[in-house]
Design a protein around this nucleic acid. Structure first.
Length: 602
DNA sequence: TCTCCAGTCC
């Protein structure tokens, strides 16, 4: 808060008029009181009232001045009423250290005080402390109430403490607070944070009263847990129950539309927003609409809306830029980025990361390098996500040395950064370096995830490192208690196939824990061609054609295998299949190889 | 005294 403003407001002639004016703000009133307090000692009741208004306006500096005044004139000593208000003030401003000192000095702690402290810790990033204080509250014999539980539940949700959350839920049921609408809504939010929408739905269905927040929490819960269709169903039920959607509802529903590519429903929401002039009050909503159109591949609509918006903020630009990249038009992303600064918008980290993605899509190395300079100039180069995007951009644009330099100079690396570096080496066919980065990552006590394993296995397969690849693959189950997914099996099939271990690859496909896809069999088929194994080629081709009868490349692959064996009848049979199914050969891929072989061998 | 709120990285 600006102290000088306080005194400007307090010129003698308007001293009282400020108070008398109906429109004076809480802050102005507090300013008046603060000045007054510093001149004359205040009673504890006056201090309490002032603290109340300062709590509402979160004026830290003024509150500190008042605190100093109270110390000087002794109001604070042994005064539970004022001390409680003061602790509540600090907690509400997020000054938990100060709040705690006051809190500890109060002997008779009211539930109001406990609640304010628990809330302060919960809402300012000290979730664990909040929970500890809650247990302390109970052990002090103070009962939790309808103001305590919302925050205890929030903390359980934030920290994903499933067991504790359930126990707290039981306590709530026992003391009859499940019917409290705030407590109920927080239960919904907690279970949705746990990813347990079934339980959330159970609580929701059991609620005697539901308000807009209850519905909004359920809609957002389904979206966050990857069930956008159900979110739209719930939204429909909500409308039928006669409730009017607010901004939060619309944000949730738009996310649901974006995630399920439901552009029709998205347009209906857009219409609703326009009819009710809701977008004016909320940039979030406009940006969400833009994001929805981008996710639904409706770039024309997204662009039209974007150009119509007079107050484009950085997020509007970011949504469009990443939208074009997602839809494969990286050039348009870069063109938009170039318009940003001249049109008065400030690129942020998100912008620059999105632009780097556009660069690696079209291997625009020089543009990427300029973006790199810009990142350094803006001081974003210490950011881990920006650094990771740079690693990715450089390796995809062919400059692995630059990737490595960025990687080495990063002040902080996370799993994704290591993963990007492993993938970079893999992409450039430098398998052994990929493996050594992978091992280095483990010595830095970073636990690999499925993505890193995919990268390192794919690096092994590109470089033909069979033994190392197998070792890493089996370490997934042996050392890391992870179940290999389709991508990992595919890498190993590819690796075994390329190395000529066709039978082993075949055995692997037959015994793998996930269902093989057409790509898995196609990988084996192409390995069969590499090592000329007709018998296995026929088996894998059959699997491919069963799953995807239109996969022309696989027909061509099989016919080429026959051609090498001079089995011309079979070559003709396969060509006939292609003709009968009316398939077209993709450009650059044809039977021409067979024709050459045919004439050569005849 | 309280709950729900968009966009970036493998």
């Amino acid at each position: 808060m600006n102290g000088s403003l306080t005194f400007k407001l307090l010129k003698p002639h308007n001293h009282y008029t400020i108070l008398l004016k109906k429109s004076y703000t809480t802050a102005a009133a507090a300013a008046h009181f603060t000045q007054h307090a510093l001149n004359h000692p205040l009673t504890s009741l006056q201090c309490g009232t002032m603290l109340q208004s300062l709590t509402n306006s979160k004026s830290v500096t003024k509150g500190q001045k008042l605190h100093a005044h109270m110390i000087v004139c002794g109001v604070l000593r042994n005064n539970t009423y004022v001390s409680t208000k003061l602790a509540a003030f600090y907690a509400n401003c997020g000054r938990m250290a100060e709040a705690r000192v006051i809190f500890d000095g109060i002997v008779l702690k009211s539930s109001f005080l406990w609640n304010f402290m628990i809330r302060g810790y919960a809402c300012n990033g000290f979730s664990m402390k909040s929970l500890v204080l809650y247990r302390e509250m109970l052990s002090f014999g103070q009962k939790a109430d309808n103001f305590t539980y919302p925050f205890v539940l929030k903390v359980c949700g934030d920290l994903n403490l499933v067991e504790i959350g359930r126990r707290v839920h039981c306590e709530i049921v026992v003391c009859g607070l499940e019917s409290d609408i705030y407590v109920g809504n927080c239960l919904l939010a907690m279970y949705s944070n746990f990813g347990d929408m079934e339980k959330a739905r159970m609580v929701f269905d059991r609620m005697l009263k539901r308000d807009l927040t209850s519905w909004n929490t359920m809609i957002m819960g389904y979206v966050k847990n990857g069930d956008p269709r159900e979110a739209l169903v719930v939204f429909d039920l909500m409308r039928k129950s006669g409730l009017i959607a607010d901004c939060t509802t619309l944000l949730g529903v738009l996310s649901a539309c974006a995630d399920s590519a439901a552009v029709k429903q998205g347009k209906a929401i857009h219409g609703y927003v326009l009819r009710n002039s809701i977008a004016h009050c909320n940039n979030f909503l406009t940006n969400s609409l833009i994001g929805m159109y981008c996710n639904c591949n409706s770039m024309v609509y997204a662009r039209r809306l974007f150009e119509e918006v007079s107050r484009k903020d950085t997020v509007s630009w970011n949504s469009m830029i990443s939208g074009y990249t997602k839809n494969g038009d990286a050039f348009e992303s870069l063109r938009l980025f170039c318009r940003m600064v001249p049109e008065g918008a400030e690129p942020d980290q998100v912008t620059l990361i999105a632009v780097l993605r556009a660069c690696d899509q079209i291997t625009a190395l020089h543009f990427g390098m300029s973006v790199h300079s810009y990142i350094v100039k803006k001081g974003f180069d210490e950011n881990t996500i920006a650094g990771t995007a740079l690693i990715d951009m450089y390796s995809k644009c062919g400059s692995l040395d630059c990737s490595r330099r960025v990687f080495d100079e990063m002040p902080k690396r996370n799993l994704v950064s290591w993963s990007a570096m492993v993938a970079g080496y893999g992409l450039h066919g430098r398998g052994s370096e990929a493996i050594s980065i992978f091992h280095e990552m483990r010595t830095n006590s970073i636990t690999p995830d499925e993505g890193v394993f995919t990268s390192v296995l794919s690096a092994c397969s590109h470089a033909g490192l069979l033994d190392q690849g197998k070792e890493i693959f089996y370490s997934m189950t042996n050392k890391f208690d992870m179940r290999p997914g389709l991508a990992h099996y595919s890498c190993l099939v590819d690796l075994l196939g390329r190395a000529g271990h066709l039978d082993e690859a075949y055995e692997l496909i037959k015994t793998m824990e996930v269902k093989p896809t057409v790509d898995t069999w196609a990988a084996l088929l192409s390995a069969c061609r590499l090592h000329q194994n007709v018998e296995l080629a026929e088996i894998s081709a059959q699997e491919v054609f069963n799953m995807d009868p239109k996969r022309v490349v696989s027909y061509i692959c099989l016919s080429n295998i026959y051609a090498i064996e001079k089995r011309w009848d079979d070559v003709e049979r396969v060509r006939g299949m292609v003709r009968r199914r009316g398939l077209k050969k993709p450009p650059g891929c044809s039977f021409i190889e067979v024709d050459k072989l045919h004439s050569f061998l005849m």
